[in-house]
Design a binder for these strands. Structure first.
Length: 161
DNA sequence: GCCAACGTTGGC
DNA sequence: GCCAACGTTGGC
């Protein structure tokens, strides 16, 4: 990363029916596992670092709420092999993963706080700083989205009470 | 529920 | 290495 500030920012997508920001608050810290997209996994493994900040995003799938950024978290572990890739019962089971050569990675994410209000995708993407992010590109499926500090600042401004 | 867009797989 | 088929994502 070329930024001098040191702290990088990301948006982590999750389906609230499966795991919501409220769930994250309840458990405090969770392995952010189940990422099964090579690019997202690579970002998580190679571009994240302990101390980086993340926004929690609820995707709209199977939910009546509009998709929105709802809270903040923090990266609190180095990357490690996602155990669910070896669990036959898990949805993310991958028979091609070996112990010597894992295919998928995760990191522990700690709850920081809810935003003052959910910021809907439509509102986010009206902001020039965010319209340029992959979150706002049509058809985008990346579940770990790097964002610039300026974009993060915009979300924080919108999310203040 | 619909369906466009996407990433991955697998046949060739 | 190509690319069609497939399964999944995700906004609406």
């Amino acid at each position: 990363m070329t930024q001098e500030s040191g702290v990088n920012w990301f948006i982590l997508k999750t389906e609230p029916m499966t795991f919501s920001v409220d769930d994250l608050r309840e458990v405090g810290t969770t392995p952010w596992d189940g990422v099964r997209n090579f690019e997202a996994s690579k970002i998580l493994r190679q571009h994240m670092a302990v101390g980086d900040q993340v926004f929690i995003y609820h995707s709209g799938r199977r939910s009546q709420d509009s998709p929105a950024v709802v809270g903040m978290g923090q990266v609190v572990s180095e990357a490690y092999a996602d155990p669910s890739q070896w669990q036959q019962e898990a949805p993310g089971f991958d028979p091609r993963s070996t112990l010597q050569r894992p295919r998928w990675w995760c990191r522990d994410i700690a709850y920081v706080r809810h935003l003052g209000r959910p910021i809907p995708l439509a509102e986010l993407c009206r902001m020039p700083e965010l319209a340029a992010t992959r979150l706002c590109q049509r058809g985008n499926r990346l579940s770990v989205v790097p964002i610039a500090a300026s974009a993060a600042a915009r979300i924080l401004a919108l999310g203040a009470f």
